[in-house]
Every structure is written in structure tokens, then in C-alpha cells.
Design a protein around this nucleic acid. Sequence first.
RNA 1: GGCCCCGUGGUGUAAUGGCUAGCACGCCACCCUUUCAAGGUGGAGGAGAUAACGGGUUCGAUUCCCGCCGGGGCUACCA
Length: 384
Amino acid sequence: MSSDPSVPVRVRFAPSPTGTLHIGGARTALYNWLYARGRGGELVLRIEDTDRERSTPENVEQILDALRWLELDWDEGPVSQFERSERHREALERLLEAGVAYRNPATGDDVAAWKREHGNRGYRGEPTDDPGAAVRLRVPDGGDTVVADEIRGEVRFPNESSDDFVIARGDGSVLYNFAVAVDDADMGITHVIRGDDHLSNTPKQLLVMEALGEAPPRYAHLPLLHGTDGKKLSKRHGAASVQELRDAGYLPAAVRNYLALLGWGTQDDTTIMSTEELIERFDVADVGRASAIFDEQKLRWLNGRFMREMDLDDYTAVVARHLGREPDDRLRAACEIAQEKAQTLEEVWPLIGFLFEEPETDEKAWRKVMKDGALPLLSEALDA
RNA sequence: GGCCCCGUGGUGUAAUGGCUAGCACGCCACCCUUUCAAGGUGGAGGAGAUAACGGGUUCGAUUCCCGCCGGGGCUACCA
């Protein structure tokens, strides 16, 4: 991604704590991290928790936990967006006073009705004096709002078809698209790297920044990750969370490598890369435009490669931690055998477990095999 | 419905206005191995009417343009 080298890169990862971090979010975090680390820039972690209904401390902790496991560190934060409400309120007041934003009581149904009468043009409402009404931003009637995207090029959104959208609730609390614009500007974010699902939100954020007199950052919208059903990956569709990957016995380094390859590739076909190499080679401008499907088979293969390349002491330590055992000599000896076979940490125990615990005898199976006097026959063979 | 994005083998990707569209995963076979893996070698698979499909530009298009179909996103006083 090209940018003014005199301005240090400053990116942010801004998840909303409405559930666990799934692989789509993890990839977004990774790309931001790789980009920042590759240019000596900074990564800010911001928690988009303005939805008080769905945001919980547990979910925030889940996200931090996932990030730590992935070994993706950040330079600032976590910053709670909700705790910045004073700043948001100030900015909102400014727009209200300038007349760029106005209070309006219209509901979603009202807006839909208005649009039906106006040939689907963007909603334009009348200001009201009611201090308890929601606040909308005035969208210009003509022209386009254009998003200069590093991955997709210039994307134009005709203003005429955009509604005057709500930026604050009747109680004065601000909405997502407003808070994001204010925060990105305030925090001096230079590059916004996020999922494609935000591309349609970008003109709104651009309009807010313009109203505020702020210069916009650069944008890069990553293609979304889809499930095998072709649908957007989400928690609801059972998308794998980062902690599930951990429990399944994948190595953070392998996950980083795999995730990096989901939407991005090297020109020379290099597949297996250390994190250092990833940092050196990755550029968000080289990310593809098409959505990708998460393929666990390739992750397994990649993970196996990483596991086999570890030295035995590290390997034993990692296995011990996964199993909740002590990395003693016995485990080390067992690991030596398992290392060439296992693709994931989970696969290690089935391979070596018999060395640590008495195997259970399946009575039914035993009887089935030992019928017809097989036992004396075998004993005889053993003696001979 | 409106606005927007996307479309290279099953999956992830690479290169390219012009040799047989490359690589990886997966799949098949063989080798190695007491077994299973791992590893090695080779192969099938993108219809010799190949890049969803149909047009166009061009001497020539997967690559540029248009259309269409399909998938996806946004369209909340959610994020």
C-alpha cells in the first residue's frame, strides 16, 4: 500500500465484543498487525462497545485472549469506544450547531414510506425541535462520495441514493458510523484495514469526517471469509473461533501462516512462511478481491509442517502444555515418536497415550476374538 | 426493492493482451516402511467448444469494455 512515508503508519483493529473472535476477525487483526509491523507503524486496539446490549466484559476478554494466543500484540489500547462518549457528544454538538446534522423523529417505517413516494431516493427529513428525537446527518443531494480503496480502487456511492442517516439516538448516545469516524480521525489512524462488510458504511463515515472537517484515512476492504455453504462467516453459522483452533491443537504460527494465505498469496508461490517472512512480504495492496472459504484440511497440513520443524524440546513443551502434563523425559521420548506423525496437538495423545495409562480392554471385542479356544493356542505359540 | 462488491480446477492462490494457465491443499497410483503416518516420485482433474455465461474492442483476451447470471455485503435510534 502506498502512503506518505513521512507520516508514520497507524492502523487499528476494532472488533465489537458481541461474541468470540472468529477466524474472519482474526485474519483482519493479522493483516493490520502485519502491515503495522512491516512498516514500523503502530496498531491500536479499539473495542467497539457502543451497543450496550450486546457488549460484555466477558466478550472483551475473549477477544484479548484470542489475540494473545495468536501472539498479535498492540501498541495502544484496548480503548473502549463507549468510554469516549464525551468526545462523541462534543462532535455531535458541533454538527448540530453548524446545521449539518438535525433532530428528526422519523422511524424506519417513516423513512421507507418516504422513499416509496420519492422514487427510492435517499431520505431527506425536516428538522424538529424535539430534544428527544434522533439525530440525522445531512447528506448532499448531488454528487458522489467516493471511497479510494487500496484493494478495490475508487468506489463511488451516489449521494442521491443515500439516506440522511441516524448518527445519534434520542438519548444522545451516538451510533456506530459516527463513533468510528470520530475515533479514526481523533486517533490519527492512517489506514483502515477491515472487512468488506464495511465498504458500504465507508461513505457514511467519510461524510461524517467531512462534516467535521477531518481528513480521511486510507481504506482497504478485505474480502469476507465464507463458510463452505458460501455464506458470510459468522458466529451464528458456526464459524470456528480462535479458541476452537487452539483447542483443536493448532500452532499460532501455523494459523498465522494459513490466515495470511487466505486472500493473499506470494508471486513466487512460497507457501510456508515464518512470521518474520510474512511481515516482510505482506502488503495489503496485494490482497485479492474475491471472498475465500476456510479450508481446514490445508490448515492441518500446514500445521503438521510447523510441528515437524520444531526442535524436540520446544515440541515437548508445547505438547505438555496442551495436555496439561509435565514435560518430563518420558513425555519427551514419546514426543520423539509422535512428532513425525501428528498434524495437530490433539492428535498426539492418541498416538502416545498407551505409554502413560493402562489400555482399556473391550470385553465384547475380546470375547469375539478369543472364542473357539484361541487363548490356549496363543499361549502355546507364546511359549514356543 | 435501492446502493455497492465479487466470479481462475473441489479448496486457497500465481502470472499474463499471445508458448501446453503455474503452485499448494485434497484426491489416485507407485516407492520407502512390520503397520499407520511422514517423506519421495508420478498422475487425474480447468471439456483441443478452458477461466460462470453472452457479446464487443483487438491480428490475438482469462487478462480491457458492456450485458447477463450467480454469490455476497450494506440498506436499524446494531456493530
